[in-house]
Write a protein that binds this DNA or RNA. Structure first.
Ligand code: ZN
Ligand code: ZN
Ligand code: ZN
Ligand code: ZN
Lengths: 147, 147
DNA sequence: TTAACTAATGAAAATATTTTTCATTGGGGT
DNA sequence: ACCCCAATGAAAAATATTTTCATTAGTTAA
C-alpha cells in the first residue's frame, strides 16, 4: 500500500500532466507496487484490483497501465506468452535490467548486473546508433528445472 | 529463389519429420529467403507469396511459419509493433544476433558482434542458469534520425 | 460550498491478430 | 493408378487490446 506521501507525490505527478487521481488509478498502482517483481499482465492486475475496487472495468486497467507507461512509472514487456506485462521502473538504474526466462517452467528471474557498457559503446561507435535503452532476455533452463 | 538442391534439401528435412513439400511451403520459404534481413510478418509474407500463389490462404502462411520455426529454419521475433516477425536462422552462429531498433523511424538494423560471452558466463555462474539463447534489442536513434 | 468544466469511467462494441474447424484437395509411397 | 492422411482455403472462433459513448466524479474557481 502506498503511504500518504507516496499518494500525494503520485497525485502531483498526475496533476503536472493534467491528469486526475482516481480511486481506480490509486488501486492499480497499489497492486503493481505490492506485486513488485511479478511482471503482471493487465488481466492479472484486473483480478487483483477487483478485490479493492469490485466495480472496476478491464478497460480502465488497460488505460491506466498505458498512462503509467507514458509517465515513466512502468515498463511494458513482452515475454512471448501472448500478453503485455508491466513492471515498475526502478529509478536507481538508467537502463532496464535483464531477464532470465526458463524455457521449461516459464519462471522469470531478474538480473542485477548490467555489464553491457562495453558492448553498447562498441555499437554506438560502429553503427553510429545512440542507445537509449535495451531489452535483454536470456532463454534457457533455471536451476530447478535442470535438476 | 531456392536452387534445385536447396529445394531437395528442404524436402528431405520435411520428410524426416513426416511433413510434405507443397507448392505453398516452397513459395513461402522462397519469399522469406528473397527478403532476408527484412523481418517480415505473416501478413507481409502473405502479400508477397500471393504473387506466386494467388490462391493461398493467410492461415497457410501462419501454419507454415510455425512449422518452419519448429524445424529450426526461422526465428520468431517481437518488435512491439503488434505482429510477429520472422527471420532465417543463420547456421553460422549458435546464438541469435542483436537488433538495433530506432525509436523514431522504426528501422531495424542487425548487429554482427555478439560479445555477450562474458556476461553469459557470469550469469550462468551467479544465477545457476543454463543459457540456450538470447533476445537482445537496443532501442535508440539511428544515424539518419539523429541528423 | 457549490457550480462548472472536462477528464475518467464501465459496458459494450469494434478492431486486430492468430488459431481452429471442417470439408476438400493433393503429395508421396505402394 | 490407387490409397492414405497431411495440407489446404474459407470461414468461424478465440484472444488481446482499443474505441465509443453515455454517465460519473475529480478539480478548480467563483
Ligand atoms: Zn524452470
Ligand atoms: Zn523485471
Ligand atoms: Zn531512425
Ligand atoms: Zn535480424
Amino acid at each position: 500500500m502506498m503511504t500518504k506521501e507516496e499518494t500525494e507525490k503520485f497525485k502531483q505527478e498526475l496533476k503536472e500532466r493534467g491528469y486526475k487521481l482516481t480511486p481506480q488509478r490509486r488501486a492499480i498502482l497499489n497492486v503493481i507496487i505490492e506485486n513488485e517483481g511479478r511482471h503482471l499482465s493487465p488481466e492479472e492486475i484486473y483480478e487483483f484490483v477487483k478485490k479493492e475496487c469490485p466495480e472496476i472495468g478491464l478497460a480502465t486497467v488497460y488505460r491506466t497501465v498505458q498512462l503509467l507507461e507514458k509517465m515513466g512509472v512502468l515498463y511494458r514487456m513482452n515475454f512471448d506468452d501472448g500478453v503485455s506485462r508491466y513492471e515498475l521502473v526502478k529509478n536507481t538504474a538508467d537502463h532496464q535490467h535483464h531477464h532470465l526466462v526458463c524455457l521449461k517452467c516459464g519462471s522469470i528471474e531478474e538480473v542485477e548486473d548490467d555489464l553491457l557498457e562495453v558492448l553498447e559503446d562498441k555499437i554506438a561507435q560502429k553503427y553510429d546508433f545512440f542507445i537509449k535503452n535495451h531489452d535483454v532476455k536470456f532463454y534457457g533452463f533455471c536451476k530447478k528445472c535442470r535438476k
